[in-house]
């Protein structure tokens, strides 16, 4: 399953729930409640809010925990022990990539920096979806650890606006299947 599609589904669900809340209140907005009923509705709404608070709190803590452990960004100051290492330098408006032929199934370490302005180093899979990215910032080296699982031609695009030819700043990576000669 493509990760982005999962996010899309979750987002539509979340926005849809917000919309439902509004639709419900809007359909109820026209009929004023009498005093006794208003008090009852009010008490119910306070209980409901407590419930929602607890539910969201648990959800938030759960997702934060699950998504931060292990920490999604590899250690930046320790060796990463990848079998393939690629040095990447962004320039206005080209990529300097030390190694463009890579293998599936073995971790690759990308060490990404820039020589002039900020660039964004994003890897697009053959199906057109982003698989990973980091910023290319002058004066800093950001390290990605990524293991390709499908062979094919991956496209690198610049995702940080870097001047007039920003969109032309692309290059390719060839990822070979395990048995193939890289």
């Amino acid at each position: 399953m493509i990760f982005q599609n999962v996010i899309w589904a979750i987002t539509l669900t979340g926005m849809g729930l917000v919309a439902l809340g509004f639709v419900y209140a809007i359909t109820q907005a026209g009929r004023p409640a009498e005093a006794a009923e208003a008090a009852r509705v009010n008490r119910r709404s306070i209980t409901l809010r407590r419930g929602l608070f607890l539910a969201l709190l648990l959800l938030g803590i759960g997702i934060a925990w699950a998504s931060l452990r292990p920490f999604p960004i590899p250690p930046q100051h320790a060796p990463l022990q990848a079998t393939q290492v690629v040095d990447v330098i962004g320039h206005q408006w080209t990529w300097d990539v030390s190694q463009t032929h890579l293998k599936v199934g073995e971790p690759v370490e990308f060490r990404v920096t820039a020589s002039d302005v900020n660039h964004g180093f994003a890897i697009y899979a053959p199906d057109g979806r982003i698989v990973t990215q980091t910023q290319a910032m002058p004066g800093f080296t950001n390290k990605i650890l990524y293991t390709f699982d499908t062979p094919g031609t991956y496209r690198i695009m610049c995702l940080e606006y870097c001047g007039v030819a920003h969109t032309g700043m692309t290059t390719e990576l060839e990822v070979a299947a395990a048995g193939d000669k890289p």
């Binding site: 509004f22 209140a25 907005a29 409640a33 929602l52 969201l56």
Partner: peptide, 21 residues
């Protein structure tokens, strides 16, 4: 998100609910 969902948006919804808006 908490203040927005649970206080401001929720507050507005309870304000319009059964109000004769």
């Amino acid at each position: 998100g908490f203040p927005v969902f649970l206080v401001t948006a929720y507050g507005v919804l309870t304000n319009i609910h059964r109000s004769g808006l």
